[in-house]
Simulated scan of single mutants.
Amino acid sequence: MTSPASRIGQSTAIEMSRAEAEVKAAVFIAQQSPRNIETAQAEMRFACNQYALAEKAFFSYRRGGDIITGPSIHLARELALIYGNVQHGTMELSRDTTLGQSEILAYAWDLQRNSRSSQIFIAPHIRDTRNGKKDLTDLRDVYENNANLGARRLREAIFAMLPAWYTAEAISICQETLAKGNGETLEARVKQAIDEYGRVGVTVQQLETKLGRSQDRWNESDVVELQVIFQSVAKGEMTRDEAFPPLRVTASEITGQEPAQQ
C-alpha cells in the first residue's frame, strides 16, 4: 500500500521544494539585513502625513445594530511594507461547493524575529442583503467574497504582528492628517462631501441625520467621519443603505394633509 507522500506528483514536489528554499532564503536575508527601527519610524511618519494614505487608513461597517470602525487593510499593508522584513498574504486552502464554503489561511510573518501571526477560517459562500442571506454560486462572486473576508483576517494578522506603539502612532498621525484636510478649507471639504454623496444618491438630509446636526454646524471630525464612511461604502465594506437608511415618508407628507384628529 502506497503512502500519501508517494502519490505526490513531480510538479507538486518541485513546487514544495522551491517554496521551502524560498522561505529559508527570505529568513536568511532578513537576519543578515535587519530593519532600522528609527528609519522605519521616520518613513512611517512621512507616509501617514500624506493625505492619499490617510483617507484610506480607516474602515467602517455595520455589525448588528453597531457601527464598527478601525484601521484598514490599506494602512496595515503600508505599515508592514515600511517596517520591513515582513511577509503577509491569504491563501485559499480548499473550496467545497457542496457545503458552500472555503477554507482560507491569512498570515503575517516577521522574518527577522521569526514571529508569525496566522489564522485559518471558514468563509461561507453567502452574502448578506436587505432581503436576507443570498447563496453565492458564481465563481466571481465567490472569489470577491473570499477576498473580502480574507482581507479582514489579514488586517488582524498584520496588526497582531506589528509593534503596538508603531501602529498606535501611525493611527494617530493619520487621524490628524484627515482632520487637517488636503490643504482645503472646511467649507470646501463640506461641499465636496455633499457632492460626493449626492452622486451616489445620499441626500443632505440623510447626512445631517447621520451626524445629528445641520451642515452649517459640521466640524473637522464630522467631515472625517463622512470620508471614512464613504470609503467603506466604495470598498463594499457596507452598503449605502446600511450607512444611511432611507428616510421614512409619512402619509401626510405624500398627501400634503395632516392626519385627522381623533
Score class of each variant (00 low, 15 high):
56 K>H: 09
59 F>W: 04
58 F>Q: 06
82 I>V: 02
93 L>S: 05
108 A>P: 06
122 I>D: 13
64 G>P: 11
101 Q>I: 09
111 L>G: 06
123 A>C: 12
68 I>V: 15
89 G>F: 04
120 I>R: 11
74 H>D: 01
82 I>C: 03
71 P>F: 03
97 T>Q: 05
100 G>M: 04
104 I>V: 11
68 I>S: 12
71 P>L: 05
85 N>D: 07
82 I>N: 00
70 G>P: 06
102 S>D: 09
89 G>V: 12
114 N>E: 14
93 L>Q: 08
102 S>E: 15
119 Q>W: 10
85 N>A: 10
81 L>P: 00
81 L>Q: 04
109 W>Q: 03
70 G>M: 11
70 G>I: 00
55 E>W: 14
66 D>E: 01
88 H>V: 05
107 Y>T: 11
89 G>W: 02
96 D>C: 06
113 R>I: 02
83 Y>V: 01
64 G>V: 09
96 D>M: 11
106 A>C: 10
122 I>G: 07
81 L>T: 12
85 N>R: 02
99 L>V: 04
120 I>E: 06
76 A>I: 09
82 I>D: 02
106 A>P: 04
77 R>N: 12
65 G>W: 03
55 E>Q: 13
68 I>A: 14
57 A>H: 12
103 E>P: 07
87 Q>G: 03
72 S>H: 03
87 Q>S: 09
89 G>L: 03
80 A>Y: 01
80 A>K: 04
104 I>T: 04
80 A>I: 10
68 I>H: 07
90 T>A: 07
115 S>C: 13
63 R>C: 09
55 E>C: 07
89 G>C: 02
78 E>I: 09
76 A>N: 01
108 A>S: 01
55 E>R: 06
72 S>P: 09
56 K>G: 04
